[in-house]
Design a binder for these strands. Structure first.
Lengths: 339, 339
DNA sequence: CTGAAAGCGCTAACAG
DNA sequence: CTGTTAGCGCTTTCAG
């Protein structure tokens, strides 16, 4: 039927109005008479016209594209977030241009350039560490950015996380109350703020009760490294409880404990994770964990970003959302605890 | 330092050449003298210039954006695919604009419109059913599209799947060889071509050996429905083996069987899935399954799409990639089987 | 409210 | 190879 693409000029011709009238009809806050609008909409519908988003972006300076940078998608927390983020942004008329950035430093530089090439209206960096140089570039380019699930010392950078410190502390309290005395930690990547904060809260919680960490190994948020860390940790003087820095690794740790080392969870050892990814609730794991409220975090992120897009003068915000303890079956439950 | 955005004209001025010379330097196959190129690159570097991808897209007609439509991200197969797809496309200089399209029919219409608004160079529809009307619209708009993990009768539509029929048949062969005689199926969504093909191969495999399906329930590819289906199925005359239409549901089925119904897998009942998602290999499930070779499927998809972008006359292709059986521990292994 | 006109930043003929 | 000249499709003053 119709060829490739209809332009606003063609619609204007058919409707018997000027091209700019057509533009106005499709521009949210413009003033057009009802009569003109009707004529234009009719012609547009007949022709199958839709405004060209790219041309509009070039001239208006706003693309309604949000760049999302994410490192990995194998940790279920991120697909979950991506889905919610994309939905929330779609609802606001924005769309998500996705960039995978492996942890390797050089790459993220490239990625940022490409993002800026597309004139994105804003950037969400999920769980990637940005050099302060990069954030400066974004600021210079006038593109607002918010860090998701990672924060930075730079007070000019907006960031949304859960209250990782408090979360870590809750885990310590639970384990201590459960009577554990050989409490260990399998860390993620030490470069991540989430790791540092969770661990700091955890250690402080132990210390407040006069205890110290029984053992510590690094899993780098990777499955195979978490398994290896578990083996090393249990080779001698095994702990009776372990706080794993995220659920993703915690599930691998449980598998190693149960099927390789022949230990019972929580009989021989309690395991606690962090995130509350969907799989944490699956009965095979039934993992006790700290919930990062993905929905709330996403809502907050979108809120900050859109506010900053609407008014670049909006001050940056750093939010650390409350993170509840989710009691399940992978850690001994202290007497009398209901929550 | 520099203000918002540098234009090619500013670079041209500083380099002492014409604006089009600058454009040519940044256009892959254009002819410029080494000398001009050097001057331009130098000026560009000093100014921090980068071509505006959107303006380029408007005038050249190619955005280097690929639209990806995906329904859900909670089935681990899709994040995995998305990550690989995004990486493969990035390597070719394309970027992915993502659209979540809940199964609801009306929505996908909107999504397609918005996709087209952004002048995407191509569309990948992962596991979403398109009405033939929609595919016609894409064709009319001259935007190539390939279906991922779903196929359609329309022979003009490119599609990449695994060989679902053969895969289903392999499952039947395995179960039969394992001595099972009460073999059941938990289906996904009957509207999905993958479901129909897998089940057809499975049923034909049973029939070829003179057997029939012991029971059938529908799980619609959703976790809670799969659990409910399992309960119904095992309420009376329970099967001794069940082929679940994908791994995502299969894991929920195993949990229900083991922790709710108190059955042993594979002692009391064998379970086989489809996809070989990462979690299928986790020891808690150790799920026997049919592997969809995500990497190969992605490579094929990208290949088809780019060929069609490069030359719109390229005929559509429909590929059903070989899908190997992955023997693990959730199904009884017949005597003497190595693969 | 509406049309005419001037761009947005860039690519693509076109002569030279 | 290079500069000049047209646009791409659209938004946005600017008169009226």
């Amino acid at each position: 039927m119709e060829r490739g693409r209809i332009t606003s000029a063609e619609v204007a011709a058919r409707a018997g109005v000027s091209q700019s009238a057509v533009s106005r009809v499709f521009t949210p806050g413009a003033s057009v008479s009802q009569k003109t609008a009707d004529k234009v909409r009719k012609a547009a519908a007949e022709l199958g016209y839709r405004p060209n988003a790219l041309a509009r972006a070039v001239v208006s300076g706003r693309s309604r594209i949000i760049g999302l940078v994410v490192a990995y998608l194998d940790n279920q927390f991120y697909p979950d977030v991506l889905e919610r983020l994309s939905n929330a942004l779609q609802a606001e008329g924005y769309h998500v241009l996705i960039f995978m950035a492996a942890q390797t430093a050089g790459n993220i530089d490239t990625v940022l350039d490409e993002l800026l090439d597309y004139q994105v209206d804003g950037i969400i960096a999920a769980s990637v560490a940005l050099s302060s140089d990069l954030s400066a570039r974004c600021r210079a380019a006038g593109v607002p950015m918010v860090l998701f699930n990672r924060s930075q010392d730079d007070p000019d950078m907006s960031a949304v996380t859960s209250d990782n410190y408090a979360g870590g502390r809750k885990v310590a309290d639970l384990l201590l109350a459960g009577g554990h005395r050989k409490i260990a930690h399998i860390a993620g990547w030490d470069g991540a703020s989430t790791q540092r904060d969770r661990e700091a809260g955890f250690i402080d919680g132990l210390r407040a009760a006069g205890h110290t960490l029984h053992a510590r190994e690094i899993g780098n948020f990777m499955l195979d490294e978490a398994c290896a860390a578990t083996r090393r940790m249990f080779a001698q003087d095994p702990p009776d409880a372990v706080f794993v820095a995220n659920d993703h690794m915690a599930m691998a740790v449980m598998d190693t404990l149960r099927f390789e080392l022949g230990l019972s969870v929580p009989g021989d050892v309690s395991v606690v994770g962090y995130d509350d990814v969907p799989a944490a609730g699956w009965l095979a794991y039934n993992l006790t964990t700290i919930r990062q409220r993905a929905n709330a975090m996403v809502a907050e992120t979108v809120d900050i970003l859109l506010a900053q897009i609407a008014d670049p003068a909006t001050p940056p915000r750093r939010e650390a959302l409350d993170a509840p303890l989710i009691l399940r079956g992978s850690a001994r439950i202290p007497e009398g605890w209901t929550q």
